[in-house]
Computed example of a mutant assay.
Amino acid sequence: MILWNDIAAHKFASLFLRPITDDQAPGYHSVVYRAMDLQKIKRNIESGAIRTTAEFQRDMMLMFLNATMYNTRDHNVYQLAHQMMKDAVSCIQASLLLLLVTFVA
């Protein structure tokens, strides 16, 4: 949950906190078949559906991929999703490195 909290505190996270509705993005659910958002990821962590960092990272990447797949490259949401994805990957990698260093030490 610490890792989720760090990513959910990102400056662009508000775009991804709740599920996307067709009112917000017309036709979204005809393009995106497996919608993902931070709220759903949090519920999956709490319920035990996400148990590993790899599963967490998979769902995070799906969330960003959905945003970049639906929006065109020149759209603001595409750009923000791409930047947040890079920051989230860095955060996940740092967390894994810290875990590895702690485990080896």
Rank of each mutant, 00 (worst) to 15 (best):
M1V: 11
I2A: 13
L3C: 05
L3R: 06
W4F: 10
N5M: 02
D6N: 09
D6V: 04
I7N: 00
A9L: 08
A9Q: 09
A9T: 06
A9I: 04
H10F: 09
H10R: 10
H10P: 09
H10E: 12
K11T: 08
F12V: 02
F12D: 10
A13S: 15
A13I: 07
L15I: 04
R18M: 07
P19T: 05
I20N: 03
T21M: 06
T21L: 02
D22R: 06
D22W: 03
D22A: 01
D23E: 00
H29P: 09
S30D: 01
S30W: 04
S30N: 10
S30C: 05
V31L: 01
V32P: 08
Y33A: 11
Y33Q: 11
Y33T: 13
R34Y: 10
A35W: 02
A35D: 10
M36H: 04
M36S: 07
D37T: 12
D37R: 03
D37W: 04
K40A: 13
K40W: 10
K40T: 15
I45F: 01
I45T: 09
I45H: 03
I45C: 09
I45M: 09
E46G: 05
S47V: 03
G48F: 07
G48I: 02
I50V: 07
T52Y: 00
T52P: 05
T52N: 03
T53K: 03
T53V: 12
T53D: 06
A54N: 12
E55H: 05
E55A: 10
E55Q: 14
E55D: 09
Q57P: 04
Q57Y: 02
Q57E: 15
R58V: 01
R58M: 09
M60C: 09
M61Y: 01
L62Y: 01
L62Q: 13
M63F: 03
N66E: 04
N66V: 04
N66L: 05
N66G: 04
N66M: 07
A67E: 00
A67L: 05
Y70Q: 01
Y70F: 14
N71W: 00
N71M: 06
N71A: 04
D74M: 05
H75C: 10
H75G: 06
N76A: 11
N76E: 09
N76M: 10
Y78V: 08
Y78L: 02
Q79I: 11
L80I: 06
H82W: 06
Q83P: 05
M84H: 08
M84I: 06
M85S: 12
D87I: 05
D87M: 02
A88D: 01
A88S: 13
S90E: 10
S90M: 12
C91H: 01
Q93K: 15
L96N: 11
L96Y: 06
L97F: 09
L98H: 13
L99M: 14
V101H: 15
V101T: 15
F103Q: 12
A105D: 15
A105R: 15
A105W: 14
